[in-house]
Design a binder for these strands. Structure first.
Length: 314
RNA sequence: GCCGAGAUAGCUCAGUUGGUAGAGCACACGGCUGAAAACCGUGGUGUCGCCAGUUCGAUUCUGGCUCUCGGCA
């Protein structure tokens, strides 16, 4: 199907368990599209069941990008994601296909669409370790105090208790000699974006989550987690803080019961869904929202084909 | 049937030496610029089981009733 713009990129967002994966694959078949995942947990190899990653069978031959691109002990960052997305878009267009960016990680979605240019200071492990150690000694408030001293603007935007953000601000200030607050630049990529939001009632999402988690347990999440642990991937890795792996690890290490671990998984996923709603707001005029009713595929197909809803970064 | 314990927020419970109440969880909401399923923050919840009595005033004390959970028969 032809679209009425020269450089289309379709974006599909929505909370966990809303049904993004399934719908986007159906849509991709209709539009000769390829899917670029913007999901921070699909990046890691070997983390399939707990992340509800689409299986090759579910993909139905639609090419997927940014899935399984890293080992669980790699730490990926927004600029890397942005680069990968840019090159995937270029390849897809080169093949004459349409890029569909699909995902629920707000930082990635807006970072890509708005073209965030994070501070130039790369994460500096040594410096970060020192700062974290200092934070542990002097406390969060004192750390925030240092930020306030060096960069009052930045300090205003960081909560006094948020050690992680204070540490990053100091890291940037120390390694660039520039203020953290002055390094928030944007350079939006020049595509025609159309952003589709998928929604369901909270109640329905919660039910789907509960069900999905039961299926994960039945489908081998324990074994998958065991495999990751045996490969030496432990709970201090960012990847292993993902919902499910963290709780199952606690169970496998006999810290909590399986029942408790499932309960915590469900709870944390619900909180996660609520927090996603902060990134993808009903009131955001860039997003066209669709309720996941049976006719949603038809509706979204019509919307994508239409002249409506294009935003062009210029 | 008898004995005991209990009945307070959606749930588990704390509490008021009598002046109509509070934690955790749940739920709702917010922030986020090189870790983001991370990290950090905000909020309201109620005929204190029912009916009487004592009292200026009872969720709190007393009596009865209802229900729940133990134990004994």
């Amino acid at each position: 199907m032809q679209l009425p713009v020269t450089d289309p990129v379709i974006v599909i967002v929505g909370p966990s368990a809303v049904g993004k994966t399934c719908l986007s694959i159906e849509l991709a078949k209709r539009f000769s599209a390829e899917i670029i995942s913007l999901d921070s947990r699909y990046l890691y190899r070997g983390m399939d069941i707990g992340t509800a990653k689409p299986t090759p069978a579910e993909m139905q031959g639609i090419p997927h990008h940014l899935i399984d691109i890293a080992e669980p002990d790699e730490t990926l960052s927004l600029p890397l994601i942005q680069q990968q997305v840019a090159s995937a878009i270029a390849e897809i267009k080169h093949r004459g296909n349409i890029p569909f960016m699909v995902g629920g990680t707000g930082q990635y979605v807006w970072g890509v669409i708005e073209g965030w240019l994070p501070p130039t200071a790369k994460p500096n492990k040594e410096l970060r370790d020192i700062l974290e150690k200092t934070a542990a000694d002097v406390g969060a408030a004192a750390m925030h105090g240092y930020v306030a001293l060096l960069d009052p603007e930045a300090a205003k935007k960081i909560e006094p208790n948020n050690v992680r953000r204070s540490v990053r601000a100091l890291e940037v200030i120390f390694s660039t000699g520039e203020l953290f607050s002055e390094q928030k630049r944007k350079d939006p990529p020049r595509h025609d974006f159309k952003i589709i939001g998928l929604q369901r009632s909270r109640q329905e999402l919660y039910q789907r989550v509960d069900q999905r988690i039961e299926q994960m347990i039945a489908g081998g999440l324990l074994q998958e987690t065991q495999n990751l642990l045996q490969s030496g991937y432990h709970s201090d890795l960012p990847s292993m803080t993902a919902i499910g792996y963290k709780e199952i690890t606690q169970y496998l290490q006999k810290e909590i019961s399986l029942e408790e671990s499932v309960r915590l998984m469900k709870r944390r996923t619900r909180t996660f869904i609520r927090h996603q709603a902060n990134w993808f707001k009903q009131s955001d005029e860039r997003i066209r929202w669709f309720e996941m009713f049976p006719q949603v595929l038809t509706e979204v197909t019509a919307f994508i084909s239409s002249n409506d809803g294009w935003t062009r970064n210029r």
